[in-house]
Design a protein around this nucleic acid. Sequence first.
DNA 1: CGATCCGTTGAGGTGCGTCAACGGGAGTGG
DNA 2: CCACTCCCGTTGACGCACCTCAACGGATCG
Lengths: 246, 246
Amino acid sequence: MPPIDMARVRDKGVATGDANPCGACPVRPLSVCAALEPEELRRLVDIVQTSRIQSSQTIFSEGELAENLFNVTAGTVKLYKLLPDGRRQITGFLVVGDFLGLAMNESYAYSAESVTVTSLCRFPRRKLESLLDEFPRLQRRLFSMASNELAAAQDQMLLLGRKTAREKICSFLLMLARWAARRGHKDNPVHVPMSRADIADYLGLTTETVSRTFTQLKISGAISLQDGNRILLVDHAQIVDMAEGL
Amino acid sequence: MPPIDMARVRDKGVATGDANPCGACPVRPLSVCAALEPEELRRLVDIVQTSRIQSSQTIFSEGELAENLFNVTAGTVKLYKLLPDGRRQITGFLVVGDFLGLAMNESYAYSAESVTVTSLCRFPRRKLESLLDEFPRLQRRLFSMASNELAAAQDQMLLLGRKTAREKICSFLLMLARWAARRGHKDNPVHVPMSRADIADYLGLTTETVSRTFTQLKISGAISLQDGNRILLVDHAQIVDMAEGL
DNA sequence: CGATCCGTTGAGGTGCGTCAACGGGAGTGG
DNA sequence: CCACTCCCGTTGACGCACCTCAACGGATCG
């Protein structure tokens, strides 16, 4: 997972971007840049660089000086932290519309890596921060996103600390379905772009346990594993119940 | 744990507050209200009500309409979420200077309860939000606090998902020491205001495992359990290592 | 066609949960 | 003052959910 060559990212961004890439951006309603005034949007366009990266590319690493913030416009990104001996916890997946860099001071608090082919808008941090001072609306939007992230983080703590493997897997499937619905995709069967190892590190399990739990759910008739990394939620109500331990 | 009588809270607040309680507030540097202009501070005073509550009092419950936000000026508060069968995850402890209500939309995303005798500043949510629009500085401060909370949440996910019981306990002790240091208290021995049950529900363990792990650390010579809920960190460097799995 | 990666399955071990008992401190009432 | 209860922290015995280690098949790729 080599780090991204930022010069190349910038070049590709210029190459793929048109004069006003944000004006026609189809995912704007989902993003930070939703509900900005035309004037504000133009100022944002001035500092943004779009780019497209392959899967398994490191976007930045924990502890690095945080010079750029990103908005995900396509694909999936994972955030993770490592222990010295290599144990990994994935703290979140980002999909279209999510903002990358909410939790940081001077340095990134986690590493970020693309799971699939991914499109990003890159904002130099200094410039974005001065825009924040000029446009309270933008700051308000970011604060609101941070609040939502915090609420999601609390949910994840409940999952990690108190749920069983089966409850974790069911919660995870429902989260994927909600994401798909938000993007306007069909949410059943649900597409699972990440590997078993990524799922395990997100849920605090091992790949073996993830695999076995999927098999159990399949045998019990709750789900059906389809090709193309898709999972059919056969008994949706039962999965909802199992996600909460009922 | 009966809910607080808000009328009584308000009355006590009026009773204990003086004309400009914030101007002389000793914990202001730690709080949201740090670095506000005198004019801004005066506007904040207009909407704030201070109160003091006993331990084990419910401040609000998950799912309730979020009508008030709080600032903790003394004592300790715990935030938690419950599963239908009663399993509990404490998602965080708040100490002096912490803001209560960062993660919410219309409703509270978790329940809040006092651990010790606690002093609170209460802000009606609507009024605080309109102040946010007027004073970007205030909004900036809240956003910064939310960012820090998010980074802390990521750390907690790593702890819950990937650390062993001993690593969890050592991380917890170091967190308490950092809090004490921030407050200007001596950080060794460290004061532990919460029960074993609260520690367990914060770390994703049971009270028995918490107790056993403390005993192990005591036997190994890393810590010493003192009376008055205090724990002496005998070998601080070793505890730091153990917290990270080294 | 070997090499590598990924997902699955099996066998066996263990860290932590469960259940139970006990002691000390605090509050309560006689 | 004691007797009683309740709550909390500790300790022991035991069980199990999940981890560890290992093997295997299918897919992808040079």
